[in-house]
């Protein structure tokens, strides 16, 4: 089976195999990405993040169903953490999305973070591109976040939605700073719970303090995802943000920023790898470490001399 043509012609098996190749860094992964890259850039990417148990999967399910009613093809990337102890993971987001499994217009892939955050964002971004080339009109990335690591999701998504629930108490204090900057849309899920007004006020206050949002003030939605309540308004908010991105030119700005980040990361990665490989093979690397450890040389001049020899 030719994976590249398979993905382009909408084969789900080909897409699935392509994702595995990219995730496991198989030899053919680079070639697949190379050939598919020019077919990407069409899909609208939504990132959904928030603390565990906020209802992200259930919301994703409802949002995906609504996009399906609009005739859109949907891709979903559900990211869950890898256990730092065993390297294994339990990926349970599909539990809330089993009805979508039967819909041929939806493709769901669960991913484990597999250690480094950088790894997560790079692979996730590539999986998004694969789904884009496959023909998904909308791609939803769903991942747990409490204010630190989810910055990665912003780098990959066009619209970032932060999901919160009432009753987190003082926990909101800890996550405030992180989520303040990343949410284009805030959704308070499980809105029938006590404490919703207080949470709403807290988010409003955070937004008041945020100086940089001038063109778009992140709206706060209320939903009860399990009952499907508030989804219609939420979809309107999402559509409004998409329209804002297009009309204000912000989408271009964000995508150019993303491109820069990706290209820089690839340059750093490839050149770094090339140099390190060369030094390791020749044994120079160990000699350098040794001389630095003996305080015969310092690492700053060592790196300078490496650079000089590479650029020669």
């Amino acid at each position: 089976m030719d994976i590249v043509n398979g993905v382009l012609s909408g084969s789900r098996l080909a897409l699935s195999r392509a994702i595995t190749a990219v995730e496991n860094e198989y030899d053919e992964a680079v070639e697949i990405m190379q050939k598919l890259y020019l077919h990407t850039g069409r899909a609208y990417v939504i990132g959904i993040t928030g603390p565990p148990g906020a209802g992200k999967s259930t919301l994703t399910d409802k949002i995906a169903k609504d996009f399906r009613r609009q005739g859109k093809k949907v891709g979903i990337v559900a990211v869950d953490p890898t256990s730092p102890y065993s390297g294994g993971a339990i990926l349970g987001d599909r539990i809330r999305m089993n009805e979508l499994t039967e819909d041929e217009g939806v493709f769901i892939r669960s991913m484990a973070t597999r250690g480094s955050l950088g790894g997560l964002s790079q692979k996730t971004a590539e999986v998004v591109k694969l789904m884009d080339a496959f023909g998904a009109d909308v791609i939803i990335i769903e991942t747990v976040g409490v204010g630190q690591s989810e910055v990665d999701i912003v780098k990959t998504a066009d619209t970032t939605m932060v999901v919160l629930v009432p009753g987190l108490g003082d926990d909101i204090q800890a996550i405030k700073a992180g989520i303040l900057e990343i949410g284009d849309i805030f959704t308070i899920n499980k809105a029938d719970r006590e404490g919703i007004d207080r949470l709403n006020i807290e988010i409003e206050m955070m937004l008041e303090l945020n100086p940089k949002e001038v063109n778009w003030r992140p709206p706060i939605n209320r939903t009860i995802a399990s009952k499907g309540e508030g989804i219609k308004d939420l979809m309107e908010t999402i559509a409004n943000h998409q329209q804002f991105l297009n009309e204000s030119g912000e989408l271009e700005v964000r995508r150019v920023e993303r491109l820069k980040t990706e290209l820089l990361a690839m340059i750093n990665d490839q050149i770094g790898r090339y140099v390190v490989n060369k030094l390791t093979k020749s044994g120079e690397f160990d000699t350098m470490v040794n001389s630095i450890q003996q305080r015969e040389r310092d690492p700053y001049s060592v790196v300078k001399s490496i650079l000089a020899s590479v650029l020669r």
């Binding site: 256990s83 065993s86 294994g88 089993n98 669960s110």
Partner: peptide
């Protein structure tokens, strides 16, 4: 299976063979 280092996709109850 997770503790053995596998990535486990848990899909829950009452599924059809098609799902």
């Amino acid at each position: 299976l997770r503790d053995a280092g596998f990535e486990v996709i848990y899909t829950g109850i009452r599924l059809t063979p098609e799902q």
